[in-house]
């Protein structure tokens, strides 16, 4: 079976783009972005771009569990930090390069997600959300007390000045995150049109009715938590290389958890495109605010925009564009 015919079942398809069109478009977009940034020739642009892309991936990952399955994860920062610290630990222990560290982060994040999924079997709604928050605090405490990765003082990561054929290390990181973000969005989009997506939507709307309709809710939830956890950890894996220095305060920053929720909601939770729009908009806004005003102002922006959208446009920007009658 193909995703395409299955998507045809939906009266309102998730944006009218076929498989080939999506991947082709994504590839073109990537090339255009890299080419454009090279023309700009500004080292800061790569870092700003990385900042936004990392949120695209984080928001997309959160959306797989929160938007598709309806399980709110308050502990996104915990998953992201697990990815970041996987890199720090593996680099220090075995001197591994970034790419294998990212793969390892995906595995560990996935395992942690699977563990969270075990909680989701027993806990519904807000209890699950609180459990994920606790999990993040627990992980934070462990990292603070783990002196191998620097404990509360943090750890410095020496990174190469550049990796050929990239002009700078900033460009390299940007491209890595770009590819990861496209893969993440592609996975989310694939889920949305598939049998899995339909089953998750059913269990999000009514878990008991879904069970009665033959949906193996238990297995689907585990798939969603695992995928979501793996992708969040991947979003964090290059963080230490990006900042050059990683401490628990930065890795477990509340801004990650809040943005992971706010971005999909503002863009449109439950659609693959929503988190992308939300992340690009909010992250750009925050980048701009950090540069021009203050870091307090950027959180204020997130707060105000979040309240307005939650109240006035619960289906997010994607919902506004579609103008659907249904909620």
């Amino acid at each position: 079976m193909t995703v395409k015919t299955e998507a045809a079942l939906r009266p309102r398809p998730a944006l009218p783009a076929g498989h080939i069109a999506f991947w082709g478009g994504a590839a073109l977009l990537c090339l255009a972005l890299v080419a454009g940034f090279r023309v700009l020739d500004n080292e800061y642009a790569w870092f700003a771009g990385y900042f936004i892309l990392q949120y695209v991936l984080l928001a997309t990952a959160w959306n797989i569990l929160g938007g598709y399955a309806g399980y709110v994860n308050f502990g996104a920062a915990g998953f992201l930090a697990v990815g970041a610290y996987t890199t720090v630990a593996l680099r220090k222990a075995f001197g591994l390069d970034l790419l294998p560290c990212i793969a390892a982060a995906a595995c560990i994040g996935g395992l942690l997600g699977l563990g969270t999924g075990w909680l989701a079997l027993r806990l519904k709604g807000v209890y699950f959300a609180i459990a994920t928050l606790s999990l993040a605090v627990l992980l934070h405490t462990i990292v603070v007390n783990w002196s191998f990765v620097g404990g509360s003082r943090g750890a410095y990561v020496l990174r190469p000045a550049s990796i050929p054929p990239f002009v700078s290390y900033g460009e390299y990181l940007f491209v890595v995150m770009l590819v990861l973000a496209v893969i993440g969005v592609g996975i989310a989009r694939g889920i949305e049109g598939s049998r899995l997506g339909m089953g998750l939507a059913a269990l999000r709307d009514d878990e008991r009715a879904a069970e009665a309709a033959g949906v193996p809710t238990l297995r689907l939830k585990l798939v969603a938590t695992t995928l979501s956890g793996a992708l969040m950890a991947v979003a964090g894996a290059p963080l230490s290389h990006y900042t050059g220095y990683l401490n628990p305060e930065a890795a477990f920053g509340l801004a990650f958890s809040v943005n992971a929720i706010a971005m999909p909601l503002i863009g449109g939770a439950g659609t693959w495109f929503g988190p992308v729009i939300g992340a690009v908009l909010l992250a750009s806004l925050q980048q701009a605010a950090t540069v021009t005003i203050s870091s307090a102002a950027n959180l204020m922006i997130v707060g105000v925009v979040l309240v307005i959208f939650a109240a006035a446009a619960p289906r997010g920007i994607v919902g506004l564009i579609r103008g659907g009658r249904h909620r």
Binding site: G66, G70, A269, M300, G303, V304, L306, A310
Partner: peptide, 16 residues
């Protein structure tokens, strides 16, 4: 989901 997001936003507005 949205009520939760609302209070999340209120929290940030108060703090900031």
């Amino acid at each position: 989901l949205h009520g939760l997001a609302f209070f999340f936003g209120v929290m940030f507005i108060i703090e900031v």
